[in-house]
Nucleic acid binder design. Structure first.
Length: 418
DNA sequence: TCTGGGGTCCTAGGACCC
DNA sequence: TCTGGGGTCCTAGGACCC
C-alpha cells in the first residue's frame, strides 16, 4: 500500500528569518507580503496576539499590541535557499521527495519500518541541519497525509507527527473535523457542502459520489476518493512543465500616466524574460493586464490583451510586444493600481536557426547571454534595456528587509551560526 | 497614506470558421 | 415549415492552492 508523508516548515518564512537572527526566536514575528502589505507568516507568539493570516499591516500597526511585534519584509531569495537546504536533508534520507511548495514536500514512505521513529529522526535532522522546525503527516494518500499534517500542527500532544494510516484513527478524526479542513475544499465548496447538510469530513466521505461530482465537479470527486483511502494523486518527481511565467505588482501609488505604466510594463517584461531564459525556455505568447484599485472606491476597470509571437526569450522583442499590448489595455481617465506581464505557450529554447525567422536568433541569443552573465556577476539590473526602470517611482515598499544571508556574499554576516 | 504574488484548472459566452 | 454542430480563439472570471 502506498504511504505518503507531508513535511512542512512551521511558520516557514518566520523560521527562515529566525535561523539567522537568534534575537528573533521565541518572539512575536510576522513576515509581510510584497509592498509590506499584509501578514503572510506568523510565529505562534504572533498568532497568540490575534494577528490573522492576510491581516493588513497598516491596520494592525495602529493597535497598541503591535509595539511588541517584530516584522520583516519578505525575502524570497532567503526562503528559496532555506527550502533547498531542507530538500537536501530529506533527499539524503527518503527514497523519493516531491517539493510541493516552498515550505512543503511530499515524501514516499512506503515500506519504511517503524515510521514513527523514522519521521521523528527526520524532523530532528532537518531542525539541526537546515534550522527549520517542521511537522509531518502520514497517510495512504496525499490528501490524507495533508490532513494528518494539519492535525500534527494543531495538537501539541502529538509531538509534531501524526499518522493516519489506521482507518479507525482516521474515522475518529473525520467525525470531529469540519469539511473546511480538507485540502482542495475552499470557501465556496465548503459553503455548498454545508448547505447540503455535509458538515464533517465523515459526512463528506459517506456522501454519494455522484452527488459530490455534481456539486464539486471532478476535482471534488477526486478529493472524496482520496479521503476514502484510494490514492489518485501520485508522487511526481519531475515538476510538470511550466505553463506560464507571470510578473505583476501593485504599485506604491496609483498610476495615471501612460509613460509610467509603460515603464512598469517594460520592467515586468524584462524580468519575465530573465526568468524565461533562466529555465531555458522561449515564449510563444505574451499577455499584458492592468486594473484599477478594487479597495478604494475608484471606478473598476480591468483589461487584458494577448498576442502570439514567434517563440523567443529576447528581452527587447518581448518588451516591444508588451508595449504594443499595453497601448490596447490603456484607457485614459483611470488610476491604475496593478499591472502585469505574462508569458505563455512556453517551450524549450531551440538551438538551430528557424526557417523564415523574423529576427536573427543567434545574435539575439548571444546578446541575452552576455546580459545575463553580467547581471549574474554584478547583480540584477547592472545591464538593462533603457525603457525599464532601475529604481522605479511606482516601486514596491520593502522597508524592513533582512540581509540575504545565504545568497549574497557581501551580506553573509553570520554564516557561522550554521 | 497604507490591503501580495505566482501558479493551476475550470467554465462560459461571443466571434469566427467550416 | 423545418434553420446544425463542432471546433478554435479570445476574453473574462471563479475557485483553489501556497
Amino acid at each position: 500500500m502506498p504511504t505518503f508523508g507531508l513535511i512542512d516548515g512551521n511558520s516557514f518564512y518566520c523560521s527562515a528569518e529566525q535561523a539567522f537572527a537568534p534575537g528573533l526566536r521565541s518572539r512575536p514575528l510576522v513576515v509581510l507580503s510584497n509592498n509590506d502589505g499584509c501578514a503572510i507568516a506568523r510565529t505562534v507568539e504572533a498568532k497568540a496576539l490575534g494577528i490573522r493570516m492576510g491581516e493588513p499591516w497598516h491596520l494592525f500597526r495602529r493597535r497598541p499590541e503591535s509595539k511588541d511585534v517584530e516584522w520583516r519584509s519578505s525575502n524570497y531569495a532567503l526562503y528559496g535557499d532555506m527550502s533547498r537546504r531542507v530538500y537536501d536533508v530529506l533527499i539524503e534520507r527518503v527514497p523519493q521527495v516531491e517539493p510541493y511548495s516552498i515550505d512543503e514536500m511530499f515524501l514516499d514512505l512506503e515500506g519504511i519500518p517503524d515510521l514513527d521513529r523514522f519521521c521523528r529522526d527526520l524532523r530532528r535532522d532537518v531542525r539541526q541541519i537546515a534550522k527549520i522546525p517542521t511537522c509531518v503527516g502520514i497517510g495512504p494518500t496525499k490528501t490524507i497525509a495533508k490532513l494528518a499534517n494539519r492535525i500534527a500542527k494543531k495538537d501539541p500532544a502529538l509531538g509534531s507527527v501524526c499518522d493516519l494510516r489506521d482507518p479507525d484513527i482516521r474515522a475518529h478524526h473525520y467525525a470531529r473535523l469540519g469539511i473546511a479542513e480538507v485540502w482542495g475544499i475552499g470557501g465556496q465548496a465548503g459553503a455548498k457542502l454545508t448547505a447540503a447538510g455535509i458538515a464533517t469530513i465523515a459526512d463528506f466521505v459517506r456522501a454519494d459520489p455522484r452527488v459530490v461530482r455534481d456539486m464539486l465537479t471532478v476535482t471534488g470527486a477526486r478529493v472524496q476518493t482520496e479521503l476514502r483511502g484510494a490514492s489518485c494523486l501520485p508522487l511526481s518527481l519531475m515538476p510538470p512543465p511550466r505553463k506560464g511565467i507571470a510578473v505583476s505588482r501593485s504599485f506604491g501609488h496609483m498610476i495615471d500616466d501612460p509613460l509610467q505604466l509603460r515603464e512598469a510594463i517594460c520592467t515586468f517584461a524584462a524580468r519575465a524574460a530573465e526568468k524565461l531564459r533562466a529555465e531555458g525556455l522561449e515564449a510563444g505568447q505574451v499577455a499584458v493586464f492592468a486594473h484599477t484599485n478594487p479597495h478604494n472606491g475608484d471606478p473598476w476597470y480591468s483589461a487584458q490583451r494577448q498576442a502570439r509571437i514567434e517563440p523567443t526569450a529576447d528581452t527587447g522583442l518581448l518588451i516591444g510586444e508588451a508595449v504594443r499590448l499595453m497601448r490596447a489595455v490603456w484607457r485614459p481617465g483611470f488610476r491604475y493600481f496593478k499591472a502585469g506581464v505574462m508569458l505563455q505557450d512556453l517551450e524549450p529554447a531551440r538551438r538551430q536557426a528557424v526557417l523564415f525567422a523574423t529576427f536573427d536568433r543567434e545574435k539575439s541569443a548571444a546578446a541575452m547571454k552576455a546580459m545575463d552573465t553580467v547581471n549574474a556577476r554584478f547583480g540584477r539590473g547592472t545591464l538593462r534595456i533603457a525603457s525599464t526602470a532601475a529604481t522605479p517611482g511606482w516601486g514596491t515598499r520593502r522597508q524592513n528587509l533582512s540581509p540575504r544571508y545565504t545568497t549574497q556574499a557581501g551580506e553573509m554576516l553570520i554564516a557561522h551560526s550554521f
